[in-house]
Design a protein around this nucleic acid. Structure first.
Lengths: 208, 208
DNA sequence: GTATATACAAACGAGTATGTATGTAAAATA
DNA sequence: TATTTTACATACATACTCGTTTGTATATAC
């Protein structure tokens, strides 16, 4: 077959990545064949091997294209700001992260792959620690935010910032995990904003 | 080779299950060969195929042996009781569930397999809904418990039981997921009881 | 305009997992 | 005691999947 332009080659690369997203999501990472990916992309395995060394590299490239930018965005955006009430910053961050995942089908599919359709062993064991990093970053930044809230007096008295951050951390993780695990529950995404609000309301001063 | 007694046959069945637990945990479900399981159990593939039709049935049997009893136990134990403070019941339930998983290496390994080393597609897609069931049961029972707490006045005023149950639900899920995903963090399990206590303390009346 | 590198398709070879079929010696059963 | 199951081990046939190699038409560099 004829050689393609650089631009065309880049296009097929993207098509392969898109196809990989679909097939990984449908069949799970380790059960997908590179031939299945190739066919879904409308090319042969030759093209896949030309652009990626093997399945692992394909997976990593896929992750890098979608996940990493999102992680960075979610981290730096709101928590570091100097808000009147840092609790609002945390609330907005969680909500924004949730909407970012749910708003885009591709992002959601990638997260479903990472949470439910990938076996974290051998080559992929490292992905797990990578996956934990943004969570740890969130934990650290939210701890600071809770401390600032405490200092400003916007947080209910008697609460420890570290404990609150850990609780929020687990909450976010559980929220995402359950959401990704129950895509059939249509009523579910509508509830999430209220859940986030309720979660943060627990930290705010008691109204009498 | 010589035929075994019924009791001996049951023993090799258990050995196969134990071996499957180890190998699934080490290599991930879809990447493990039945030959690997057989060798780890000290038998041949013939024995494995004699006791189990295929890998899927082996996985289900493994799950049934360890997980199901635990689920039932955690559900019925404390939440249904008529306690002075239903919040204590919830707290104890979460703690007990956590300790049950962390106390037994085999249980922990199984949960790690189910959360991080299994791709929920095709045959295993059903496992996911099975996996969600105990969570939904916890959600329902804890909702009732929170309602009772509200009625008894042991819960802080102005909190909605349903919202609290959802928050606890996400919390538990996130807690387990993170714990299973970071087995290297040795300091982590020691923190969990405090986290659970802090989580529940948020629901108790403000002390002035 | 010629040479070379590119972007694949197509074919190949080797390894490996799976399910089944067969063999067999002892335990159950009658 | 004779017969029939049982509980495997062994052997086999099939089917994939992978990584590599080869071929080739065309951009692109010079």
């Amino acid at each position: 077959m004829a050689r393609k332009t650089k631009a065309e080659a880049e296009l097929t690369r993207q098509q392969i990545l898109d196809a990989a997203l679909q097939v990984f999501h449908a069949r799970g990472v380790s059960r997908t064949t590179l031939d299945q990916v190739a066919k879904a992309a409308g090319v042969t395995r030759g093209a896949v091997y030309w652009h990626f060394a093997n399945k692992t590299e394909l997976f990593f490239a896929l992750r890098e294209r979608i996940s990493l930018p999102l992680m960075d965005k979610g981290q730096s955006l709101i928590l570091a700001e100097n808000l009147a009430d840092p609790l609002d910053g945390i609330e907005q961050t969680i909500l924004a992260l949730f909407e970012a995942i749910m708003g885009c089908e591709k992002v959601r599919q990638l997260f479903e792959i990472m949470f439910l359709r990938c076996e974290y062993v051998d080559d992929f064991a490292g992905v797990l620690t990578e996956l934990n990093k943004p969570g740890l970053a969130f934990l650290e930044k939210s701890t600071h935010a809770y401390r600032r809230a405490q200092a400003k007096g916007t947080m209910r008295a008697g609460l420890e910032p570290e404990a609150m951050a850990l609780d929020s951390w687990a909450f976010v993780r559980g929220l995402f995990h359950h959401f990704l695990a129950s895509p059939d529950d249509a009523a579910w995404p509508g509830r999430v904003p209220a859940m986030i609000r309720a979660h943060m309301a627990l930290r705010r001063p008691c109204r009498v």
